[in-house]
Amino acid sequence: MEVILAIVIGGLYAAGIYMLLRRSLVKLLLGLGLISHAANLLIFTAARLTRAASPIIPVSEEAFPASYADPLPQALILTAIVISFGVIAFALALSYRTYKIAGSDDLDKMRETKE
């Protein structure tokens, strides 16, 4: 199963990176979104997959079944998801403001290297 997900991860990275490399600001934003999906899925996969029970102790029991999904990467991914949500929201606002000021979303026109 890891092979399949590894390919999915690679595909998502490829798509995200391709979008990052565009000249259009709008596409860049979509690229960021795709890459964050890829990264989360990567953590999930690298920590090994299991179809076993989710890491929740059933109410009736005091101990845990022998087979369970690793809860730690889930917590990490959750944190990462939320952080990238904040980042993407900020990036959207930044793009909006940039577009308003620059009047274009062509990134090649935004290269004020000399002053």
């Binding site: 990264a39 920590a47 930044l94």
Partner: peptide, 26 residues
């Protein structure tokens, strides 16, 4: 804005690499 765009994008790429490395490490 021009500076921030580059700063933000490249630093996010760095974070993404960091995160991926973390996942693999874990």
């Amino acid at each position: 804005m021009q500076g921030a765009l580059k700063y933000v994008t490249i630093n996010l790429v760095s974070s993404a690499i960091f995160l991926a490395a973390l996942g693999l490490l874990y």
